[in-house]
């Protein structure tokens, strides 16, 4: 625990961006690593297929948590459960709780829209809207009722800077986002998610469709973002998980096999299956 806190402070000092000094009171970040998400005996079925079984997991704030596992293990399903995007599939049924900041996300009092406003998502393939770069980034704010041009301008610039793409696009904010490269598009998508200042950012294999250089840029970006946000990332790339994450959960056939510090998972796993997977024996 103490070690973890030290690491946090170190990272904070290393940050150049002054914006990170302003901590948001609403989410009460900084002091201690409170849990943001907690899955309690969570089960999920696609029709008859029991895709997630008795998931118990806790994610803490200002950490990058990686979820790894072979394809079909339920890692994508799980991350999409966290913002209830999984419900877009009509035959989905769930049991158990997922608690976000002490509130069950399946509770009637929390609307999915509100949840998704606080829990942003970046998808596997870059999926910008067929609109201008500016309109892409301003979209979330507009949807949530912010219309003042001055505010929007500021949000767009801040988010694009936050996603480390401001310098590349500042001269063509009105150009269609589809004209950008894949890596740039993905950073626009990250900027778009940042624009409504979420609390948690879910990333579903965010670099799987990108080239190595773009991947490096996104990974660096994630390290910066974790100062302000909690990040949960699904990845099929074990080196990536080892490079970027603080905690790692290994999913296998719908179960969580092991969840621990990334270091432990990769260097000293307790479970044989984890060891086999991280050493590349299957998957």
């Amino acid at each position: 625990m103490a070690e973890l806190k030290m690491k946090e402070e170190l990272d904070m000092n290393a940050t150049i961006n002054t914006q990170t000094e302003k901590k948001d009171p609403a989410s009460g970040i900084v002091q201690s690593s409170k849990p943001v998400f907690e899955a309690r005996d969570f089960n999920l079925w696609y029709g008859d297929n029991h895709a997630l079984q008795n998931i118990n997991l806790t994610f803490k704030e200002n950490e990058i948590s990686a979820i790894i596992g072979p394809s079909g293990c339920g890692k994508s399903t799980f991350i999409k459960s966290l913002n209830r995007m999984v419900e877009l599939v009509p035959v989905v049924r769930t049991e158990g709780d997922i608690v976000y900041r002490e509130q069950n996300i399946f509770d009637k009092s929390l609307s999915v829209e509100e949840l998704r406003t606080k829990v942003g998502m970046v998808f596997q393939k870059p999926n910008p809207f067929p609109k201008s770069i500016y309109d892409n980034v301003a979209y979330g704010a507009r949807v949530h009722g912010i219309r003042k041009k001055k505010v929007l301008d500021q949000i767009v610039e801040k988010s694009l800077r936050g996603a480390a793409i401001w310098d590349e696009v500042k001269d063509r904010l009105n150009a269609n986002a589809y004209g950008l490269s894949g890596g740039q598009q993905q950073r626009i998508c990250i900027a778009r998610a940042l624009a409504i200042e979420p609390d948690v950012i879910l990333m579903d294999e965010p670099t799987s469709a990108l080239d190595p250089i773009s991947t490096t840029k996104i990974e660096d970006l994630m390290q910066e973002l974790k100062e302000k946000y909690s990040i949960i990332v699904v990845t099929h790339n074990m080196q990536q998980a080892a490079r970027i994450s603080d905690k790692t959960a290994f999913f296998y056939q719908g179960y969580v096999v092991e969840h621990d510090d990334t270091k432990v998972i990769f260097e000293n796993p307790k479970d044989k299956r984890t060891e086999d997977y991280v050493s590349g024996r299957f998957g």
């Binding site: 948001d24 609403a26 704010a141 912010i146 500021q154």
Partner: peptide, 13 residues
């Protein structure tokens, strides 16, 4: 001046 986006969104909720 910085706007508090989260608060604005919360108010529009």
């Amino acid at each position: 001046n910085e706007y508090n986006i989260r608060e604005m969104i919360q108010n529009n909720k």
